[in-house]
């Protein structure tokens, strides 16, 4: 394989891994995809280490005459992560096509670029609306009454929309969830004044369900069980920061409310 082709192939594998990792793919899936992509184009030795904050790949391959080739290594720092499972599914499908159907590297790169540019399947308004649906039906499962159902629905639409916009503007996740938590508590307290039937606690639980780092916690523990200790700890740390931020926001507003004399 020529020097330039090798480099292009490595970049292609890196971009595929990056899209997956940025959009919520699991560590082992990213590592596996990168290894398979590289091996399919004849690299004899491929190692990839993936953590939530970066991808490290190195490849080695003897050239046609069997001489030692140069070793290549690429690193990529990942800063922003959001969850867009459609892109993970698309890259997964791309990897299958690339390995089995023998796309050329140029075509592969084009396909990846178009995956990266695809807008998410649901826009911000749809996400906000479904955020409302989620939280309201979730508190119905916990035994909420109709006024609570309605208030959770409308309040969560507002909360979800706010955190989506803040995430788009690339604020730090601590800030996003701090604001989200505080907003959730304020809205719940305001709505709680409308009717004595509305329990502020229950509405807040509904609202923060769209923010709780459940996926990060679960993936963190799962990575740790599977032996990906660095990813496991990093994800658990991420989850902890998000949980603390939400608790900070909610707790601050609730304390303030208790301080000025309102009851829960």
């Amino acid at each position: 394989m020529e020097e330039i082709t090798r480099k292009k192939m490595l970049v292609l594998a890196l971009v595929a891994g990056e899209i997956m990792l940025k959009n919520g793919g699991e560590t082992y899936r990213v590592e596996d995809t990168i290894t398979r992509l590289c091996k399919s184009r004849g690299f004899k030795y491929v190692e990839s280490i993936v953590t939530p904050t970066g991808i490290y790949i190195s490849v080695d391959h003897p050239d046609e005459d069997g001489r030692e080739g140069p070793m290549h290594s690429f690193n990529k720092r990942i800063k922003n992560r959001k969850i867009n499972l459609e892109k993970v599914a698309k890259v997964n499908d791309f990897s299958r096509r690339f390995v089995q159907e023998g796309l050329s590297i140029g075509e592969g790169m084009k396909a990846l670029k178009s995956i990266e540019k695809t807008p998410p399947p649901f826009n911000n308004y749809e996400v906000a609306f479904f955020g409302g649906i989620t939280s309201s039906f979730f508190i119905l499962l916990l035994g909420a009454n109709f006024p609570e159902f309605l208030s959770a629905f409308f309040a969560t639409i507002f909360v979800t929309y706010t955190i989506t916009i803040l995430a788009e503007k690339e604020f730090a996740s601590f800030t996003i969830f701090l604001v989200g938590g505080a907003l959730a508590a304020v809205l719940a307290i305001l709505l709680g004044q409308l009717s004595p039937q509305i329990s502020i606690n229950r509405v807040i639980i509904g609202e923060i369900m769209v923010m709780v780092p459940g996926v990060a916690i679960t993936n963190g523990v799962r990575d740790s069980i599977a032996g990906d200790l660095i990813s496991g700890m990093a994800r658990a740390g991420e989850a902890l920061i998000v949980a603390v931020a939400i608790a900070f926001g909610v707790g601050f507003v609730l304390n303030l409310w208790a301080f000025i004399g309102g009851g829960l």
């Binding site: 867009n84 599914a89 399947p121 749809e126 996400v127 479904f130 989620t134 119905l140 996926v215």
Partner: peptide
């Protein structure tokens, strides 16, 4: 209820 709530989560995760 669980069905509808899960669909909502699925939208949040952009499936």
């Amino acid at each position: 209820y669980a069905y509808i709530a899960t669909i909502g989560f699925a939208v949040l995760f952009q499936v």
